[in-house]
């Protein structure tokens, strides 16, 4: 199971440069979703004229399902500068892959909640790290796409773009590099602060459970 929590409001606001197309995912029943806070925050953005559309749907982690829904919103997505996704890490990655030439940002962090793991189509993976890195990596999860779960860039082991650990797997950081280059945003990687993981996120899980 997993829990999603809103990132700091200021940090989300800093991402929305211009107008946002917002996607909420209410798919898995196992997922605790900060529905109330998300709604309040989205209302604020809307009142400030920073939203082209808010789409609430189920199972955005299913690429076919996502495509079907997004088809009806081509104009709104086109008009938006960023796509802001309120979902678990798998959902954000699915949207980022589908809208590969758009800035797609995660508005939530995904934490682990011990117990039954929700059934999600496993095209993308999320380790529920509690400090989602997707906004600095073009929407590709460095923890699951890189064999060493590196958060500061590529190791020296990639050969022909493939991972040193598994030559059948494309190097995750090579994918991130290409995605950011395509978006013209390689600067965010160059200028990102040194990232260090916090493994004490079980405290945050406890807090989120209590706040429910």
């Amino acid at each position: 199971m997993l829990i999603t929590q809103l990132k700091e409001k200021e940090s989300i606001e800093a991402l929305v440069n211009g107008k946002a197309f917002i996607i909420n995912c209410f798919g898995c029943k196992e997922v605790h979703f900060p529905e109330k806070e998300a709604k309040e925050f989205q209302e604020e953005l809307k009142a400030a004229g920073k939203v082209t559309e808010i789409l609430t749907m189920d199972y955005i982690c299913n690429p076919k399902n996502l495509e079907l829904h997004l088809q009806n919103y081509k104009a709104e997505i086109e008009a938006a500068d960023v796509v802001l996704v309120f979902s678990c890490g798998v959902g954000v990655q699915t949207v980022a892959d589908f809208c590969a030439d758009k800035k797609v940002f995660a508005a939530c962090d995904t934490y682990e909640l011990p117990g039954y793991q929700g059934v999600t189509p496993q095209l993308f993976d999320c380790d529920q790290c509690g400090m989602c890195f997707l906004n600095g990596t073009g929407g590709i999860c460095p923890l699951t796409a890189c064999s060493k779960s590196l958060v500061n860039g590529q190791c020296g082991g990639a050969k022909n773009g493939m991972c040193e650990v598994d030559p059948e797997m494309e190097c995750g950081w090579e994918r991130i590099q290409k995605r950011l280059e395509k978006l013209g945003r390689i600067d965010i990687l160059k200028n990102a602060p040194v990232q260090i993981r916090d493994y004490s996120t079980d405290d945050a899980t406890k807090e989120a459970k209590q706040s429910e």
Binding site: N152, G153, Q154, G156, A158, K159, N160, G161, C171, W173, E174, Q177, E181, I186, L189, K190, A192, V194
Partner: peptide, 16 residues
């Protein structure tokens, strides 16, 4: 790794 086939990613990492 200057002769890496991912030299762009290597240069970004070098800068970091």
């Amino acid at each position: 790794s200057p002769c890496s086939d991912s030299v762009d990613a290597q240069l970004v990492k070098m800068e970091r």
